[in-house]
Amino acid sequence: MRRAIRRAVLLLALGAVSPGWAQRANFTWEIPQTVSVVDVPGQVDANGVPVKLRAVRSKEKAQTILQSVVDRFISWGFVVPEAYKQPQLFREPMVTALDTRNFISYTAILQVNPDSTTTVFLGEANLGAAKAPKPAGLPLFPGASKVLTAETEGARTLSYTVSGKTSADVEAFYREQLLKAGYKEIQPRVFKSSSEEIALNLGVTREGPVAVRLVRRAALPDDGLSPGE
C-alpha cells in the first residue's frame, strides 16, 4: 500500500498542479461502498505545492465511483473540465476539479484491485500556498517533459515522461550517469552511495511515452555485505 500511495502522490500532484485547476474549503469526499480508509499523515510537497492525501478502498465498481465523484464535484459548484481536457497521465482513470474561490484542487485516481474492489486515491492540493520547488539533484534524461519533484516519507522523488525512447534507453542513461557519480548498482535499477540510495522505476503511459520515476532517500553506510546478507 505504501508503494501505491507513493506512486499516487506523483499522479495526484501532476494532475493538481496543471495550470488552471483548484478547489474549495470544507469539501468532504463521499465514496460509495467504502470498506477502509488510509490517511497519509502530514502533507506531501509536490513541485512546491502542499498536497494532502488519503486512500479509500471500495466494493463499488470504478465507473460508478468515478461518476459519483464527478456528481459531487458538480454539486459543490466546482469547475469540472470536459473529459478530453482531464489529465490522464497513466493507465488509471483520474478526474480533477477546481473550486475557484479557494485555489485548491481535488483529484481522484481509481485503481481496480485483483479482488474486484477499487482503491481511490484522493488528493487536495493547496495551490495558493505553493512555493518554489526544491531541486531533486538528479540528472534528467534529454527530452524529459512533465517534470515533477515531490518530497514525502523522508524521500525525494523525481518523475517525468520521455517520448521517442525505450525503457532500455533510459535505464542505460541512468546506469552510466550514476556509476560515474560513484554509485554502485546493488540490485537491478537500485543504486547506492555511501550515504544514499536511488531507485529507478520505469513504465509506459497510456499515450506511449516512457514514464520515469526516481526515488532518492538516505541510506545507512555500506557494511560491505551484498543485498540480502
Rank of each mutant, 00 (worst) to 15 (best):
E60G: 06
G128T: 04
A132D: 15
D71F: 04
Y183R: 11
Y84L: 06
T28Y: 02
V147F: 03
V56C: 04
Q86K: 05
D115C: 10
P209W: 01
A199I: 03
L178E: 13
V35G: 01
R189N: 15
K85I: 00
A8G: 15
L179D: 07
L138H: 07
S18G: 11
I198W: 14
Q43T: 09
I31F: 10
N102I: 01
V17H: 08
P139A: 06
D39Q: 09
V37F: 00
K146P: 00
G224K: 05
K192Q: 12
V40R: 11
A83Q: 10
P32F: 12
G137H: 06
G182A: 08
R216G: 10
W76T: 12
G154W: 04
Q33P: 03
R54W: 00
A16P: 06
E82P: 01
K85R: 12
L66S: 04
S226Q: 12
V37W: 00
Q67M: 10
L89K: 04
S145N: 06
N26C: 03
L98A: 11
Y160M: 00
R2V: 15
P227W: 09
S18C: 05
D115I: 06
L89P: 02
A8D: 13
P81V: 09
E153C: 08
G137L: 05
A4G: 11
S36Y: 04
V95F: 02
G15C: 14
L148D: 03
T100R: 13
K184L: 02
N126Y: 15
F121R: 08
D45N: 14
D169I: 14
S195E: 14
K192L: 09
G123R: 08
F27K: 06
S159V: 00
I65R: 03
E207K: 12
K146I: 02
A211H: 12
A22I: 02
S18P: 00
Y174M: 11
G128S: 09
A129P: 05
E207M: 10
A83R: 12
R7E: 14
K131T: 11
V147D: 04
I5F: 13
Q88T: 09
Y84Q: 08
L89D: 09
Q177Y: 06
I198G: 11
E124P: 02
P209R: 03
D169Q: 13
L214T: 04
V69T: 05
E197W: 04
L158G: 04
D99F: 08
T118M: 07
I5K: 10
G48D: 14
R57H: 01
Q187H: 08
G154A: 07
T161E: 12
N102Q: 05
E207G: 00
F78K: 01
R3S: 15
Y160S: 01
A172D: 15
S226F: 08
L11V: 10
Q86G: 03
A168W: 07
T119M: 14
G154Y: 08
D223T: 02
T107G: 11
N47E: 15
A130H: 07
A144T: 03
D223F: 00
V79D: 05
I198Q: 13
R6W: 07
P93Q: 13
G182K: 03
E82N: 10
L122K: 01
P114E: 12
P114K: 10
Y106A: 12
G123M: 11
A144W: 05
L10A: 01
T96S: 11
V215K: 06
A218G: 09
V51F: 06
F27E: 11
E30K: 15
S36C: 08
E124A: 10
A13N: 03
